[in-house]
Design a protein around this nucleic acid. Structure first.
Lengths: 183, 183
DNA sequence: TGCGCGAGTCAACAATTGTTGACAAATTTT
DNA sequence: AAAATTTGTCAACAATTGTTGACTCGCGCA
């Protein structure tokens, strides 16, 4: 039995959808409020402003399901998280899109940087075993983000036009190489 | 004997520096003109507007030096193009940064997409031999762009804090894996 | 009935943006 | 020297942006 969604929750969801696809600076407060059907003033009322609303959406990404695994099937999970088609319900693949779209924003870029470093890269490196853990973690993320960048943002032929299964094979090939790096 | 740079050339250079580092929407016409020391109206006068000025900078990237090689040392050139430190004089490493920074811009994103597809990915695939050329070209670009993204934009530890030589070793490892892909 | 309160609207603000037309100065052309 | 063309400035514009304060409406409660 779900409660009738409050306006505040509606704003949060609309903000997530818009920020995560268009990027912070490319979404106006009025874009969000008209999507919900309320006045623009409510954003400042409820969240203290546009920036506060964005950070409220950021706070929802405190856990990365790609890290919910031991070192063995970490590769499988990492590959799957990018191979899956876009699904606004699952925060996993969605979150990566948001990061790329917002990383170069002068207003929120720093937030994204620390979120990825501390919330994703550091835990990932800690999960690996062997030497050069930080380097291999960074290389794995380079592969995953690079594939997402080519597939979703640049929409390159040879990546954007592949089925999730096909793309998973390509990414797995690269991810394995990243984890195998030993100098 | 270089001519004294004309104001139009100065605008073009200032626009390149700013657009390529901050992104199109994050740079105002007045940012560019005050950097040169002239009035903002000159952009519309000389280039037909902000958009025209941006496309004038895009027109300067019609050739990719990473493609100036046969299939053999293509990998070496590709790796070098990303390992080199940021240098506003050389358009090579610079151009990739520009592409990432502007790819998500609603105004110029499509320009970047077609430029990369037709000017970079297609010629690259044509240069490869063997099967799955389009896929391997896309994978190589995923590695190169992903490394640039982690290093310059996300500034991940394990990539951003490496010397050009060290980063070249990592990228070469991944790039070789990309070119070796056979399904 | 009257009081208070949460929810939301409305009008307006200051700032920033890209662009334009009229004008002034300087330089070249005739 | 006079005319014309280039080169640039200046003021102003309309649109968009985030934010604020005053206000209205509806509902529970005394």
């Amino acid at each position: 039995m779900s409660q009738p969604a409050s306006t505040k929750e509606n704003l949060l969801q609309a903000a997530r959808n818009l920020f995560w696809t268009r990027g912070y600076s490319n979404v106006s407060v009025r874009d969000i409020t008209t999507a919900v059907g309320v006045d623009a003033a409510l954003v400042s009322r409820y969240f203290g402003g546009k920036r506060g609303l964005f950070e409220a959406t950021l706070a929802q990404i405190d856990r990365w399901s790609a890290l919910d695994s031991d070192a063995d099937d970490l590769l499988t999970n990492a590959v799957n998280s990018f191979a899956q088609p876009y699904d606004p319900k699952k925060d996993r693949a969605n979150a990566f899109s948001m990061l790329i779209v917002n990383i170069n924003d002068p207003e929120v870029g720093d937030d994204i940087r620390t979120l990825v470093q501390q919330g994703l890269a550091d835990p990932l490196a800690h999960k690996l075993d062997g030497s050069l853990r930080q380097e291999r973690a960074a290389m794995l993320l380079a592969v995953l983000f690079g594939a997402a960048l080519m597939r979703k943002n640049f929409q390159l032929q040879g990546m954007a036009d592949k089925s999730p299964d096909d793309i998973a094979i390509q990414i797995r090939h690269l991810a394995q190489a990243a984890l195998r790096f030993d100098g």
